[in-house]
């Protein structure tokens, strides 16, 4: 029998093979249990993090609708609003129009913390701005006001958001939308093809 098979502990007694077997099992169990404990403890935090982030994009082709948060979303327009004297020339106000056909009507749950964004090719993200506003001639509303509009199933809502974007980003920006009930997934729309 080798020396390693019969180690001497600090009390000077030899270990029996059964003790040694359990010692090894315990050691191996730690390898599994410590990561498992970490996973269990951080589960809620990770869930909370994912619930607040738009991580996984689903591409939506131009002209097509996508089911998201219980309704059908379609991008209808993406355009720059030029000619405002109060905005510096290197900055462009951009308007995003979407048409949403309401499916499931409990928007206050499904569309909670609705976020419409612009994402450019470098991954920069813009949120709607409050710095400029345009007079609305139609019945367009913002995503958050649509939540409280009392829309019924089958209604087609016009949603419009305004952004401030630097000129160099306007060539690659794509509209995107995220809602709490679908996060971390979000819709990323293809730019209008004309």
């Amino acid at each position: 029998m080798s020396i390693a098979a019969q180690p001497i502990d600090e009390t000077g007694n030899g270990r029996t093979p059964a003790e040694r077997r359990w010692w090894l099992r315990s050691l191996l169990a730690l390898v599994v249990l410590i990561p498992a404990a970490l996973a269990v403890m951080s589960y809620d935090s990770v869930k909370e993090l994912l619930r607040n982030q738009d991580f996984f994009a689903t591409d939506v082709a131009w002209g097509s609708k996508a089911r998201f948060g219980g309704s059908d979303w379609q991008l209808t327009d993406l355009r720059a609003a030029l000619g405002r004297a109060d905005i510096p020339p290197e900055v462009v106000p951009v308007l995003v129009d979407m048409t949403v056909t309401v499916g499931e009507t409990n928007l206050q749950t499904l569309w909670l913390s609705c976020r419409i964004m612009l994402i450019d090719s470098a991954g920069r993200r813009w949120l709607p701005t409050a710095a400029v506003s345009f007079r609305q001639t139609d019945d367009a509303m913002t995503c958050n006001s649509a939540i409280f509009s009392g829309a019924k199933g089958g209604d087609a809502l016009k949603i419009r958001e305004t952004f401030l974007v630097p000129k160099d980003a306007t060539a690659t920006i794509r509209p995107a939308v995220g809602v709490a009930s679908e996060r971390p997934g979000f819709l990323l729309f293809q730019r209008p093809q004309n």
Binding site: V91, R125, L127, A130, F163, L164, P166, A169
Partner: peptide, 8 residues
């Protein structure tokens, strides 16, 4: 103050 990327 609200800030947007690329907008001073």
């Amino acid at each position: 103050v609200a800030l947007d990327p690329g907008v001073a």
